[in-house]
Nucleic acid binder design. Structure first.
Length: 331
DNA sequence: AAGGGGTACAACCGCCATGCT
DNA sequence: CAGCATGGCGGTTGTACCCCT
């Protein structure tokens, strides 16, 4: 155990490895030194007294190793005491955060998969900024990471569209364009290869009124979770539906209880009736769709909306861009 | 090549809830 | 019940790195 943790620390510390991005531990010592003034209140909280100068800022390799080794030996919890006992000149809070968000062995790093992104969008629509609650549904992901994803990616797109992230306008964009695209990508992953599925499944994912997207445990063919779609029946009890991939296999089947999904905290997809209205076919609603599209011509190009889904890395068929026109035609 | 703006993410802050004494 | 310690959460900030001009 200790060995494994030490190896992890080495990997983490070794040149920004673990993060797979520009982040990783920042060039710590300089910055930390520059910000060394310890807030006195925290010094007292840590029970250190005046002689203990608390460090702040990025963690050093040595600090990481100290924390990892100490936890490997004594376990976690009682963070202030832990920080003192381990000889770390950090607040308990800082140690806890460092451990939970970065050093824990089961922390998953790197880009969010398409289905993880889809799940985040879906859960955020239900629960709002309940990051820890959302993180609990994504094994290995931390609330901090999800929060950062939301702020940097999702809010960026809202800004691009010149609307608030909570506005109906943006939610419609997510619903009609972003989520189908993510679903498409996730389905491709399920298919076991890196090609995108034929438009059949994607279309099903896109246009099914009252569609639900839910994640289930990973099947062992795919490194990511299985995405399942569920359209509710008119009776709105429970229902099931199957998304097929290009070779005709069923990607997944799931039964979902509509009533449960209609719970009080379920704001976004519970507006399925609104979606249904938009896709129901009356000329008025059709007009709404076109207006929506005209309002936001930038939605014609969603490249970059899916993390790890850049144009450069996409197979040709993935270059297809979805428009509301396409969606409408599929019905 | 330089620099300025944007992006991503680790780390910090303040507040609150809970449990213990 | 009050006071304190601790843990958890959401929001914010600071900074390294990337990209474009």
């Amino acid at each position: 155990m200790e060995m494994v943790l030490q190896q992890r620390a080495a990997v983490i510390s070794g040149g920004n490895a673990g993060s797979g991005c520009r982040g990783g531990p920042m060039m710590a010592p300089m910055v930390a030194a520059a910000k060394q003034e310890p807030p006195e209140r925290e010094a007292e909280e840590a029970g250190g007294g005046a002689e203990t100068e608390l460090r702040r800022g990025p963690w050093t390799v040595d600090e990481d190793l100290t924390l990892i080794n100490y936890i490997a030996e004594h376990g976690e919890g009682r963070w202030n005491a832990l920080a003192r006992a381990a000889g770390l000149k950090r607040t308990g809070k800082s140690c806890r955060l460092r451990w939970l968000n970065y050093l824990r062995p089961d922390v998953k790093r790197g880009d969010f998969t398409a289905d993880e992104q889809l799940l985040i969008l879906d859960l955020h629509s239900r629960w709002g900024n309940r990051w820890s609650k959302i993180a609990a549904q994504l094994p290995g992901r931390t609330d901090n990471e999800i929060k950062n994803y939301w702020r940097t990616r999702v809010q960026k797109h809202a800004k691009q569209l010149n609307c608030d992230v909570n506005s109906k306008r943006f939610k419609d964009a997510m619903r009609f364009l972003w989520m189908p695209r993510l679903a498409e990508r996730a389905s491709a992953a399920i298919a076991g290869d890196d090609h995108l599925v034929s438009s059949t499944a994607a279309a099903a994912l896109t246009v099914m009124p009252e569609m639900m997207m839910t994640m289930t445990e990973s099947d062992d063919r795919s490194p990511c979770s299985v995405i399942t779609t569920t359209s509710s029946s008119s009776s709105r009890t429970s229902s099931e539906s199957t998304a097929t991939v290009n070779d005709g296999r069923a990607a997944a089947v799931l039964v979902t209880d509509w009533d449960e999904m209609q719970g009080a905290d379920h704001e976004y997809w519970s507006t399925a009736s609104a979606l249904q209205q938009l896709t129901a076919g009356s000329s008025a609603h059709q007009q709404q769709l076109f207006e929506f599209q005209e309002d936001m011509p930038m939605l014609q190009d969603l490249s970059g909306w899916v993390q790890g889904f850049s144009e450069a890395s996409m197979p040709d068929q993935a270059q297809q861009l979805w428009s509301l026109d396409d969606i409408w035609r599929m019905q």
